[in-house]
């Protein structure tokens, strides 16, 4: 099986660990993720003003690339890309007036009417692969690890593009359980990490991130599992700063769901780029005694 795939800018550099682990895991399941040709940045956030259409052009251009490729569905990984592409798609499908204006503006492109369906990889696994298939494909079960799925904002909000309804965290739970681990729900699983405010109002973002990490620890999680590079930055890479400021008490490993997915399917740890995670991730995997060769990631 082959599916059209939109990686997003961050996944091509700073979040290679999200991109490459996903592509490898899907290949292990016999699914080829075919990257769109000539894609551009999706815009990351959806424009919320009724009279602002220019900011929908970026995601629509990507959807046009998918249509040109003959794709029926477009798989995304980054939560922000998923959200901005899915919401732009709804406008092009449902709002005739806006659709006409946007198509007219993009006079160098073919017209688009929302023909492509935007799907997050978790939804793709749920609807097209099935959790039992994944359970059977697992080579190294991640037993003994207590994982907390963290959805953040953009997988579930607003409702019209929710991968699953707000307050429900079943897809990631089913995946992680299929991989053999124990899953714990924690009450901050859909609390915003502060998002892009890390650049404008870091204090505000940091206090939000600290609450998420503390709540996960209180719930007994060994690690947090997520699908957004900005969440990973605020909750993972910025942990050293949070510790220093005394906002959190201990380090919490933060993984992309695709990294654990790939590892459990027997994909080489090199393709999971654990060197891009915080060191606590490798420590946790070692401590649990899984037979992964993590020397290379540790050396980097």
């Amino acid at each position: 099986m082959k599916v059209s795939y939109y990686p997003g800018c961050t996944l091509k550099s700073k979040a290679k660990n999200l991109d490459e682990s996903a592509v490898a895991a899907m290949a292990a399941l016999g699914v080829e993720m075919e990257e769109l040709p000539r894609w551009n940045c999706c815009g990351a956030v959806h424009s919320l003003a009724d009279d602002d259409l220019i900011h929908h052009v970026a995601p629509v251009r990507d959807l046009i690339r998918a249509k040109e490729q003959g794709a029926e569905i477009l798989v995304t990984l980054c939560s922000m890309c998923y959200n901005s592409l899915a919401r732009a798609n709804l406008i092009m499908r449902d709002d005739e007036e806006k659709r006409r204006t946007i198509n007219l503006f993009m006079d160098e492109e073919i017209d688009y009417q929302g023909e492509v369906e935007v799907v997050h990889l978790l939804g793709f696994l749920d609807q097209r692969i099935g959790w039992s298939t994944i359970r059977e494909a697992v080579k190294v079960p991640l037993r003994g690890m207590v994982l907390a799925p963290y959805y953040g904002c953009t997988l579930q909000r607003p409702r019209d593009v929710a991968m699953e309804p707000p307050g429900s965290f079943q897809m990631m739970r089913r995946l992680l359980e299929a991989l053999g681990s124990e899953v714990v729900h924690f009450p901050a699983a859909d609390l915003c990490c502060g998002s892009y405010q890390i650049l404008a109002h870091p204090e505000a973002a940091e206090s939000s991130s600290a609450v998420i990490l503390q709540t996960a620890v209180q719930a007994g999680a060994d690690a947090l599992v997520l699908s957004c590079p900005l969440c990973d930055f605020n909750l993972g890479k910025r942990q050293a700063s949070l510790l220093e400021q005394g906002r959190i008490e201990k380090e919490v490993p933060v993984f992309y769901f695709t990294q654990l997915f790939a590892l459990a399917l027997g994909v080489s740890p090199d393709l999971c780029h654990l060197e891009l995670n915080t060191p606590s991730c490798i420590s946790l995997l070692k401590q649990k005694g899984y037979p992964f060769d993590l020397d290379e990631a540790e050396r980097v």
Partner: peptide
């Protein structure tokens, strides 16, 4: 911060702010 931040943080912040 500009060097470390994921690209989506810059894109989002500049679009909103």
């Amino acid at each position: 911060l500009l060097r470390e931040c994921p690209q989506i943080a810059m894109v989002a912040a500049f679009r909103k702010l």
